[in-house]
């Protein structure tokens, strides 16, 4: 579904992603893990067209994303729920969700709204409330709900557990697994290594702008080097 080969990109003159390879098959949850500052968010920005590709290729469902604008990429069904949520604080919850279908799946807006409200009943209660007044957890739900409104083929979730209480983090990971079981392909970008490996099919560890270790999530969870570096075991 997504195939990245030899990707290089960064900001200005500074290279952040230095020749990264990654593949995601349909129906999978692929976890992209790594500490702060290894390039996770930069990778996501390149995938959603916010940063230009310096070299290498990104193929999404068989077509190249070279030169594609963020709007093209959304239209193709690659939806990115960014770190920090980036919801529209000055607009109501309902309007935020509606804008999720601005570029894609506009005709299915009604059905998808119902679906989002079924997944997140709390959002239905707060439909007319300004999004900026929601709690952190609710804002994260809104960001994911807004992403789902576009009927993603591949959903990138960047740090969905960031800043949430342990209970909500648990809830969030359960939800991600449920969405995946309903057929959605998910790229989960996280610092939360233990829980991510728990729900992912495949995982890759990002270090210094490259994938250092890749493999089935269960295998990575048992990898002694990884356990030392990331799990403190």
């Amino acid at each position: 579904m997504l195939e990245i080969t030899g990707l290089r990109t960064g900001y200005g003159q500074t290279e952040i992603i230095r020749g990264l390879d990654l593949a995601i098959a349909p129906g999978q949850i692929v976890a992209v893990l790594g500490a702060n500052g290894v390039g996770k968010t930069t990778l996501n920005k390149a995938l959603s067209g916010l940063l230009p590709i310096w070299s290498g290729t990104i193929q999404f469902e068989g077509s190249s994303l070279a030169g594609a604008t963020p709007a093209d990429i959304v239209a193709a069904g690659l939806i990115h729920v960014p770190e920090g949520r980036k919801i529209f604080p000055n607009m109501s919850v309902l309007e935020n969700l509606e804008l999720g279908s601005y570029r894609r799946a506009r005709l299915h807006r009604r059905t998808n709204l119902d679906r989002a409200f079924t997944i997140f009943p709390r959002l239905r209660d707060r439909a007319s409330q300004m999004a900026g007044t929601l709690s952190g957890g609710e804002q994260q739900m809104l960001a994911i709900g807004r992403g789902l409104m576009a009927e993603p083929r591949l959903l990138i979730l960047d740090e969905p557990s960031l800043g949430l209480s342990p209970l909500l983090v648990e809830e969030m990971f359960t939800l991600i697994r449920t969405l995946n079981q309903e057929g959605l392909t998910i790229m989960l970008v996280e610092q939360n290594v233990v829980q991510s490996l728990d729900i992912a099919d495949h995982a890759t560890i990002l270090e210094n702008g490259q994938c250092s270790i890749q493999g089935p999530a269960a295998e990575l969870a048992a990898n002694p080097a990884l356990r030392r570096a990331y799990l403190g075991l």
């Binding site: 709007a71 729920v81 999720g100």
Partner: peptide
């Protein structure tokens, strides 16, 4: 940025 990611040009 949030708007760009919704496909808003």
């Amino acid at each position: 940025m949030g708007a760009s990611l919704m496909g808003i040009d």
